[in-house]
Design a protein around this nucleic acid. Structure first.
Length: 296
DNA sequence: CAGGTC
DNA sequence: GCTGG
């Protein structure tokens, strides 16, 4: 079915669609013929930006605004978060990057599958997973796949999950799907919880450690104080934040972080960057990945 | 060597 | 410990 594209005027609201979709927070978006195509829940839609206007089709405006968090006061976040020249420069470079409100289930499985792998490999196995077990959807003459539901993944064999390139993570994903589909674990419940409590709940799941929990809370549950620390963010902190949070950076000296060390780094980052620490994290993460590729 | 975890 | 880029 042909869908008419509608137009949303940003009217001064800062937004950069390309950076928002390319900064590594979300997977499975595809660029085709000048449009970005994405599947959110069971719904395919497309979107593109030309200057101060956002065009979209097969979706309503409120959904676009909600998904891309256009209601976040980015100017306020910038003022509140930019405590030093380094993070300020990252905000300037990628101004308009917004944290997306992802589907919690897909986000959870995405970041469980992301542990200790590079982004191309993550994209590949998430696509394979959707293609093998998700509902087939057609739009604009293209084929897309919804992300497989918990019920569906609970019925799939672990071996079938391994065939999607998930390696040993297949076991965690299978187990989590069973817990969620049976009702033993409820994702919706996390919505109303404060950050720390939701973090405690999530890390009960096998395959969900401190870092994965922070990603899910930041990208799907709008806990903007969550500060995921991965290898890239650890590099930024070591290189540029030793004088602002010395005790946290000292803990990054060795290899793997203990849960308590990870928690202290998060607490320091929240104390320093404030209630929107997650925004600082995403700007710094993307900045590090795009500008410092060759650094060890 | 990878958006860490058991 | 899997395993692809």
């Amino acid at each position: 079915m042909a869908c008419l594209a509608l137009k949303l005027k940003l009217d001064g609201v800062p937004f950069n669609l390309d950076v928002t979709l390319c900064c590594g927070q979300v997977f499975r978006w595809r660029q085709l013929g000048g449009w970005w195509y994405g599947v959110v829940g069971e719904h395919v839609f497309k979107v593109r930006q030309v200057g101060n206007e956002v065009f979209y089709a097969n979706v309503d405006e409120s959904m676009v605004k909600r998904y891309f968090s256009l209601d976040h006061d980015l100017e306020r976040i910038r003022l509140r978060t930019c405590r030093d020249a380094y993070v300020r420069q990252a905000f300037e470079r990628f101004w308009g990057l917004r944290l997306i409100r992802q589907d919690p289930w897909e986000c959870l499985i995405s970041y469980v599958s992301a542990a200790w792998r590079n982004i191309p490999a993550i994209n590949r196995s998430l696509q394979a997973l959707a293609q093998a077990h998700g509902e087939k959807l057609s739009y604009d003459g293209q084929v897309f796949y919804a992300f497989p539901t918990p019920e569906r993944l609970a019925c799939v064999t672990e071996k079938s999950l391994r065939n999607c390139g998930l390696g040993y993570r297949a076991r965690y994903i299978h187990e989590i799907a069973q817990q969620v589909s049976s009702g033993a674990f409820t994702l919706k419940r996390l919505r109303g919880m404060p950050y720390a409590q939701a973090w405690d709940e999530l890390t009960v799941l096998r395959g969900v450690g401190p870092k994965v929990a922070d990603c899910v809370l930041l990208f799907a549950f709008e806990k903007l104080e969550a500060f995921p620390v991965d290898v890239w963010v650890a590099r930024v902190l070591k290189a540029h934040y030793a004088r602002y949070m010395p005790e946290a950076v000292a803990k990054l000296a060795g290899g793997a972080l203990s849960p308590s060390a990870y928690a202290k780094i998060g607490a320091s980052a929240r104390a320093y960057f404030g209630e929107y620490a997650g925004y600082a994290q995403q700007y710094l993460y993307h900045n590090e990945r795009t500008c410092m590729q060759t650094r060890k």
